[in-house]
């Protein structure tokens, strides 16, 4: 793990100015592995973390951990968007008269001629 490659940029970032220097963050341990995670039944409730605090923690994660986090977020979004995702078997119609400029011009002329006297 090339954690040290990221450290030069951390010092210059305002995001991490307020970060504790202790590398063993109580929220996320950057060097944790799946094997090190506690069994599900022993997990204690996760304390509430603000988005800004979360960003600070994410910022100091190792590159590989950021990729894992990215995979997790993408998987979460895929689940969330499942109902909206496109499928090969789906039919997706586009009704927009995209370039119907002649018709649009004809409507403009009709509007100009009938302004104030709408159809009934």
């Amino acid at each position: 793990m090339q954690t040290n490659e990221l450290t030069p940029t951390l010092e210059a970032s305002p995001l991490v100015d307020a970060m504790p220097t202790d590398e063993t963050s109580p929220i996320i341990d950057p060097i944790s592995t799946d094997e090190a995670l506690p069994a599900p039944e022993s997990i204690t409730p996760i304390p509430t973390v603000s988005f800004d605090d979360l960003l600070r923690v994410v910022h100091i994660l190792a590159r590989s951990e950021k990729f894992r986090l990215l995979q997790f977020v993408v998987a979460e979004l895929a689940e969330y968007e499942k109902e909206e995702s496109l499928t090969l078997s789906g039919t997706y119609e586009v009704w927009s008269p995209l370039d119907a400029y002649d018709a649009a011009n004809a409507l403009s002329e009709y509007l100009e001629a009938h302004k104030g006297s709408p159809d009934e």
Partner: peptide, 10 residues
């Protein structure tokens, strides 16, 4: 009325 010519699926 003068017909309009639409495009695409319409």
């Amino acid at each position: 009325k003068a017909p309009l010519e639409l495009t695409g699926n319409l």
